[in-house]
Design a binder for these strands. Sequence first.
RNA 1: UGGGGCGUAGCCAAGCGGUAAGGCAGCGGACUUUGGAUCCGCCAUCCGUAGGUUCGAAUCCUACCGCCCCAGCCA
Length: 566
Amino acid sequence: MKPDSAPTPERSDFLREIVAADLVAGRHDSVVTRFPPEPNGYLHIGHAKSICLNFGIAAEFGGRCHLRFDDTNPCKEEQEYIDSIQTDVRWLGFDWAEHLYYASDYFEQLYEWAVHLIKNGKAYVDDLSADDIRTHRGTLTEPGIESPWRERTADENLDLFARMRAGEFPNGSRVLRAKIDMTSGNINFRDPVMYRILHAEHPRTGSTWCIYPSYDFAHGQSDAIEGITHSICTLEFQDHRPLYDWFIENLPVPSTPHQYEFARLNITHTVLSKRVLLRLVNEGHVHGWDDPRMPTLSGIRRRGFPADGIRDFAAMVGVARADSVVEIEMLEHAVRDALNRTALRRFGVLNPLKVVIDNFPEDRVEQVEVPNNPEDESAGTRAVPFARELWIERDDFMEEPAAKFFRLAPGREVRLRSAYFVTCTDVVKDDRGEVIELRCTYDPDTRGGSSPDGRKVKATLHWLSAGHALPAEIRLYDHLFASAHPGSGGRDLFDDLDPASETILTGAFVEPSAADIEIGQTVQFERLGYFCPDSDSSPAALVFNRTLTLKDTWAKLQAQGRHDSL
RNA sequence: UGGGGCGUAGCCAAGCGGUAAGGCAGCGGACUUUGGAUCCGCCAUCCGUAGGUUCGAAUCCUACCGCCCCAGCCA
């Protein structure tokens, strides 16, 4: 290994600097990281940051990254989560190759190491109840006091620990504790629990075990077994690092991994906490883990966010040690940016308004050629049927146009995208005075959307042939929480849920080719936003989710106007 | 009040003793067959505060202030 052979990644942050320095100094031949989820819930975008970090560093430095399930608490873990986590990591674009591991694979080795500590007088079986252990632990400012069982002989401890494993004792009756320092300022050193009795069915080991190692006793040793060089976790584990190191130093482990911490991701208008997400699901605030409003990877996937947009976002927010809350606009920017490059353009009308072109022959249907993606000529074009009766967007017409509104209005000429210029000649209303139809004329010389005489129009509208359009249900999504910082200011988090975060539109139409969009593909309905077929969609009943709107200057002007008039 | 961290623009975030990158948001303008996209310009005399060291400090030292995490047999 040449000291100067460490690759220099384009991105840099304090972790990459540490890795690069370790490689240059020859402390490691290659870097090995790991992403260690507990299978007790679905992965969310905060995990995506960690996944991109761990797999990203490994890839950039020519190392490898393991996927390891931290499955040491059978009470909360399920196979469903193990499966979804693998699906999500792959979807994000990462590959652990053959390096799929489970902390539960190491239970026997961990048990032997616990015995090793007992023999060295560094661990003991404690008969205190959970409550007593808590009171003996002291407080943040007062030292703890030692358990009366702390000085048992190694033989007695060995016997008791073996019987714990054998299932002789009920849950909670005893624990194995590391014997460190009940007066330490670091509470993790006040004889932390290494094993607890849990007569529970484990998703992988079934009923083989009835004692389970704690996180602190399992994590570092699992890292050591796998030869992890850089064990990257979030800030709240900083206080655990001395304990992590203590176990590594006091056990005959095959390698000496080191732990590094970074600030977890927070995003405005949402919540990245498995505990809260579980409640949202269980209490029915959303339709499930993959509800398109959820920040879970399965949720944003269903919503239509592309994996590369998420990866771009992770790179954009960076990695540091300061607590931070990223504005959700940054995520949305990354998603729009990714989608703008690749999404095919289609026509869809959310709130249809009938338009009749009076001077267009009644039985004529023209096939208009429309570009699939103006950003990418190689995406080609498609034919969209044009006829006498059309749908346009209700918002694209104002009988009495406001200032700066330059779409359709009585007497006004606009362009129907890629088709013709049309002029509104009449407005048809129902008994209640509501506009139900527009009569227009078209200029046959403007076929394709431009005028031979060079005259300009101020607006271009999307449209659909009423006789050819396909009905569709369209689900509009907005931020799950109305507040930028849910639960701040002493409010109940759940009171900040936005009841309008999901709006179902049933009267919408899409162009015929939209029926061919596959699940997993996100397209742009021109001028509206990005949409994707929902998993509920079928050829007989099309359902689209709105991924994100396009940036909308007009909507912003309107919002400002509303604001100014207050 | 014990221990561990963190404070650079509205939000992220570079910066590692030589005179404040970049992105998001915002604001102007150009262009436009998506009011999209794209392009151009503006946006910290200042780095939590106060002292000190130095020719020179966001970077070093001291004190103070503020915020976050830790008292699960969760991870």
